[in-house]
Design a protein around this nucleic acid. Structure first.
Length: 572
RNA sequence: GGCGGAGUAGCUCAGCUGGUUAGAGCGGAGGAAUCAUAAUCCUUAGGUCGGGGGUUCAAAUCCCUCCUCCGCUACCA
């Protein structure tokens, strides 16, 4: 039994995430967490809301609420939706927790002690009417290059030229529209990533088993231009972790907070501390996941994220941990994903285009979404959601191949032998053949899951379901029963056991349906089928079962058309 | 512009450390079966592997070049 620490990229607090966000981090992380638990490993699966930063402040202001209240509410909303999708976090924390505040300040202090923090005085645009400094992209104006009048201070979306806010003609605040802007001097802390460049490069170079997507992004940042640049880790904001050097004040940094991308990854650690507190555990119990000097030496740490998050997880956060020079557990494997597009374009939070997590759950059970999203996970390239594809895949795979198999087996048995596992006959060559195929395929499935090859795992699982139908079709107990009822009983006994086996191995993908199957089989034995033949003898003759409700109702053409229309426009 | 990813059957994709007739699922066509959510199973059609050039006995796979789509490009997170 091994130990796995699993974290998903933290969803940002300012709204409900869409399915593209879900499939890029939380959902595959949950798949692997469930799988590893199913194999009997010890797993700590953590996620949290990322709550600091300008967008949170603005979203709260728009909602007319204090930012702390807004975040608390949105955290609960996101936690509820996560439960709805069956995301099996051991703890769903908050980056605004006291644990994260203390740890973030601790890291800053240690980094400063080790000489990796530099104070830099710089010029920032201040909006007098908004009463705040503005991040570059919150300044709008006319592009000096192409004349586009809604160019942002960091880049013109029209001509893609990179800009400095001071380049803009007629600059104004993107928040209030105010033109009363001025450049002010302000002091910030920089993390001297450049000083850790070699150490990080060596570390990345040692990760030869990581996905190309992950390492290519990291290497690009390491070698681009002059190499890894120092990075500002503080901001002039109210909402965030106050800048402190450990527990001490930081002279000259009063009223400033740490940059969200400095405190958010620290929450991966702090979340474990929150988990301990929430479950009445000791400090030692979470430290054995995170401190290599306190028991985390045998932990394998897996991170899941969309590709846009990769630089922060391969460079910034490792720089923080390396610079701290304390025995914190470093990530062992980073699984990154491309983007899921929606019907020919991007999912868009701002435009309300695509399907959001709450809406998805309001129209269909989570297993439908989990199956489609995972079996189409954007691993090798961007993937695309279309209603036709969704309807076709879900109906065929879940309703026809798996759901119908459960129906035909249980109903046939009930009609011919009653709702108990029949006892006659014995397994012959055909059954041995099935067991051999299942064993081969199951080992392949395990290999793909261990390698975190999500789509391949889904394909193999589906093939395992199909093998059940193939067996049933060739065995044809409905024919055999006329001449050799004993043999038909053996076939049905095998098929009923197959349903339980499918529940076990399908649970990472479709936990609710798996539970329904297990419950129908009158069992609670979730032991992984290491030995397929033995697993197919789990339900003994005479064991009672029940015919479950239809597992997956099909999506009709009308449903599909309605939803397509409903989600094409602006979210209401 | 730079960097990265992708372009393979109508659709979604695998293959891509070069090597027998380029694969899978869906969809199409034909058939079998009738236990089942008209659900299953079998058979089958369909591709000049984005275009062009090159290396090689041999290229979807390696090299060059061009085209198209997508992402990132360091103060959104």
């Amino acid at each position: 039994m091994a130990r796995y620490l699993i974290t998903s990229a933290l969803p940002y607090i300012n709204g409900i995430k869409h399915l593209g966000n879900l499939v890029g981090s939380q959902l595959p992380a949950d798949l692997i967490a469930r799988y590893l638990r199913g194999r009997g490993h010890e797993v700590l699966f953590l996620c949290a809301t990322d709550e600091h930063g300008t967008p949170a402040e603005l979203a709260a202001a728009k909602a007319g609420k204090p930012v702390a209240d807004y975040c608390a509410e949105m955290h609960e909303v996101q936690a509820g939706i996560a439960r709805g999708f069956g995301l099996s976090f051991d703890h769903f924390g908050r980056s605004s927790s006291v644990q994260n505040r203390a740890l973030t300040q601790h890291f800053a202090g240690v980094l400063a002690d080790n000489g990796y923090i530099q104070e830099v005085s710089e010029k920032q645009v201040y909006s007098i009417d908004d009463g705040r400094f503005l991040p570059d992209r919150y300044i709008e104006g006319t592009c000096p290059n192409c004349g586009y009048d809604k160019a942002r201070g960091d880049q013109c979306e029209n001509c893609t030229k990179q800009l400095d806010p001071t380049d803009l003609i007629d600059p104004r605040s993107a928040i209030s529209g105010s033109t009363r802007l001025e450049v002010r001097e302000t002091k910030h802390l920089y993390l001297r990533q450049s000083a850790l460049k070699g150490q990080i490069a060596d570390w990345i170079a040692s990760k030869t088993d990581w996905p190309v997507l992950t390492t290519s992004i990291a290497k690009k940042w390491l070698t681009d231009g002059d190499g890894l640049q120092d990075r500002g880790i503080t901001r002039d904001l109210n909402w965030g972790v106050p800048v402190k050097k450990g527990e001490a004040d930081w002279p000259g940094m009063e009223g400033k907070v740490f940059y969200v991308w400095f405190d958010a990854p620290v929450e991966y650690i702090a979340c474990a501390a929150e988990w301990a507190e929430a479950n009445g555990k000791t400090e030692a119990e979470w430290e054995r996941w995170w401190r290599t000097d306190k028991g985390a030496g045998d932990v394998t740490y897996l991170q899941f994220m969309g590709k846009d998050n990769v630089p922060f997880h391969t460079l910034s956060f490792p720089a923080t941990l390396m610079g701290a020079a304390e025995p914190w557990k470093m990530v062992d494997y980073i699984k990154s994903f491309n983007y899921l597009n929606y019907d020919g374009g991007q999912f868009s939070t701002s435009q309300g285009r695509g399907i959001f997590m709450d809406q998805a759950l309001s129209i269909l059970p989570s297993d439908y979404w989990r199956w489609w999203l995972l079996s189409h996970a954007p691993e090798s390239s961007d993937a695309e959601f279309t209603w036709d594809n969704f309807q076709g895949s879900v109906n065929k795979d879940l309703a026809d191949v798996l759901g119908n198999l459960v129906s035909r087996v249980t109903k046939f048995c009930r009609a011919k032998f009653g709702e108990v596992v029949p006892e006659g006959g014995s397994y012959g060559p055909r059954e041995q053949e099935l067991i051999a195929e299942l064993t081969t395929r199951l080992r392949a499935y395990e290999g793909h899951m261990q390698a975190m090859e999500v789509r391949k795992s889904a394909n193999e699982l589906r093939a395992i379901w199909v093998a059940g139908n193939e067996y049933l079709q060739s065995a044809a107990p409905w024919t055999v029963i006329k001449t050799d009822p004993e043999q038909a009983q053996a076939m049905v006994r095998l098929a009923l056991n197959l349903i339980r086996l499918y529940a076990v191995i399908s649970r990472p993908f479709i936990p609710d349906a798996a539970q329904a199957m297990m419950t129908a089989m009158g069992s609670d034995d979730w032991a992984w089928p290491e030995d397929v033949a033995a697993a197919l003898a789990t339900l003994p003759a005479g064991h009672a079962f029940s015919v479950p409700e239809v597992l997956f109702t099909k999506i009709t053409d009308e449903n599909s058309a309605d939803w397509q229309a409903q989600f094409s426009g602006i979210r209401s």
